[in-house]
Write a protein that binds this DNA or RNA. Structure first.
Length: 372
DNA sequence: AACCCGGGGTA
DNA sequence: TACCCAGGGTT
């Protein structure tokens, strides 16, 4: 076990400097800072997990106007909640927010369990850091946060080596965060830690000249502020392949399917997808036996953060297909419906509009042409 | 075009 | 316990 160097400052010195900076330069007028109830702090924290303050504010205001308390939220339908979440992305968090409201009402008598960190962290969508943030900010009890801002500041201050996603690094950062957490002024301290990372100890250009810790910061001493926190080790992206069926009818409309509610492109509309030509054919035989295949189009690649997807569009034509399932629709590229489309599907469909798909006389073998 | 983000899920 | 996942915004 490696001996860790001690923290660069005693807790009381760190707190005094941080709060002095916060009093002069922190954010004091955010909507959730006034009438700072657990409910309002919770909603703001969940929204802020994925989005910056300026974007969150109008969403937060609309949300509060429609769902002023946890009871109102628990009584709403999931659709209504997701409607107000539209545009924020990460809909799983909107769903968790709704689920957690129901747990608070059903299992905690409508009161957030703000006197028990573990109970808070057991609520859907709330982990250790968010639980700490809600408790500290809504009650002033001693609780510690470790969000991305705090991880960045602390890893610079102590030149913590290694990617914070690694358990050993994360443990060290939690220990530092707990070490500095005061026993008083928790509301201000917690906001100060977030503001400090967000506005001064920024990812790109930290403002070291104005930093109250620039005399003790180990990263600054080495002139290596930008090296911390270390980034996630990059891996070669795996490549997956898929066939996307462009089944067109005589009116030039294309068959779309709605994707399952969770996972990749959850809830969005897309083209029927297949791992290989065999399963595509089987699908056509079963559901559109009169369809005629055209030669497939050139493949293209869509890149995600964690894999590359090689997409081969496979056009086919059918005179008419009456049985359209609930999660299916005919889509007219020239008069697009206002629905959510997966990004590459959207690109494919908009490129489709000016063209007419032609089908050969008979069924063709699947023929893949790869562009360079 | 990389990089980032807190929590949930899985092997 | 040690990964992987989502997907829009920032840089």
């Amino acid at each position: 076990m490696t001996q860790m160097p001690p923290p660069v400052l005693a807790p009381d010195v760190f707190q005094r400097r941080l709060l002095g900076w916060f009093d002069a330069h922190g954010r004091h007028d955010l909507p959730w800072q006034h009438e700072r109830t657990p409910y309002r702090v919770w909603v703001s924290e969940i929204m802020l997990q994925q989005t910056q303050v300026a974007t969150v504010i109008p969403y937060f205001e609309r949300f509060m106007a429609r769902f002023p308390n946890v009871l109102a939220l628990a009584g709403a339908s999931q659709d209504e909640v997701l409607h107000l979440w539209t545009g924020l992305g990460y809909y799983a968090r909107g769903r968790n927010l709704h689920k957690a409201a129901r747990v608070v009402v059903d299992e905690h008598g409508g009161e957030f369990p703000v006197h028990n960190l573990d109970d808070m962290a057991a609520l859907p969508g709330i982990g250790r850091s968010t639980a700490g943030a809600i408790i500290a900010q809504s009650t002033g009890q001693r609780a510690t946060i470790l969000d991305g801002n705090v991880k960045r500041s602390l890893s610079r201050l102590h030149a913590v080596e290694g990617w914070p996603g690694r358990p050993a690094v994360e443990r060290r950062l939690w220990a530092l965060a707990e070490h500095f957490t005061p026993r008083e002024r928790l509301v201000d301290y917690t906001q100060a830690m977030m503001d400090f990372g967000a506005t001064l100890c920024r990812r790109g250009r930290p403002d070291c000249a104005r930093c109250p810790f620039n005399d003790v910061c180990l990263a600054h001493e080495r002139g290596e502020e930008r090296r911390f926190p270390e980034s996630k080790p990059s891996k070669a992206l795996p490549t997956r392949t898929t066939l996307m069926l462009l089944l067109c009818d005589d009116d030039g409309r294309v068959l779309l399917e709605q994707r399952p509610p969770s996972g990749l492109w959850g809830g969005l509309w897309g083209l029927p997808q297949f791992d290989d030509g065999e399963s595509l054919r089987a699908w056509l035989d079963a559901r559109a036996p009169g369809a005629k295949l055209a030669p497939s189009w050139a493949s293209f690649t869509h890149v995600f953060s964690h894999f590359r997807l090689d997409i081969t569009p496979q056009p086919a034509r059918i005179a008419r297909l009456d049985a359209v399932g609930e999660a299916q629709r005919w889509y007219d590229p020239e008069q697009p419906d206002s629905i959510g489309l997966a990004a590459p599907v959207k690109a494919l469909l908009s490129s489709l509009a000016p063209f007419t798909l032609t089908a050969p006389a008979g069924p063709e073998p699947l023929h893949q042409e790869y562009s360079s």
